[in-house]
């Protein structure tokens, strides 16, 4: 799992080839913490087919807001430097993330 932050976001996410999935989380967001093990499992399962990153928004507030993330958790899907899909706080679940990954790879 790649940790992305303000200094490597462009390179790791926006300039990446293929599908990149970013888990926007924060240490005070219990739902994010609950989801994390599932995200790791999915990342492992689809390791060859997409790139998986996590972003701690607590140290990267501006970056998150620039990505139009103002509420947690959010799983965002990027390709070719653009956000192509997103699962917001009410849609994030192990099932929905996996379904979206399958749909996009």
């Amino acid at each position: 799992m790649i940790e992305v932050h303000k200094d490597n976001f462009d390179q790791e996410v926006l300039q990446a080839d293929g599908l990149t999935v970013v888990d926007f989380w924060g240490p005070k967001c219990e739902k994010c913490l609950a989801l994390m093990p599932d995200f790791y499992r999915i990342a492992e399962q689809y390791a060859g087919e997409a790139k998986f990153c996590k972003l701690d928004t607590s140290g990267n507030r501006r970056l998150a807001i620039a990505q139009k993330v103002l509420g947690l958790p959010v799983i965002a899907f990027y390709r070719g430097g653009e956000k192509i899909a997103e699962l917001g706080p009410s849609e994030c679940s192990a099932e929905s993330i996996e379904a979206k990954v399958k749909e996009l790879i």
């Binding site: 139009k68 509420g71 009410s90």
Partner: peptide, 14 residues
């Protein structure tokens, strides 16, 4: 998740 929230603890930072 774009500014509408029901959880201050989760999202206050933003």
């Amino acid at each position: 998740g774009k500014g509408v929230s029901y959880c201050a603890t989760c999202d206050a930072d933003f």
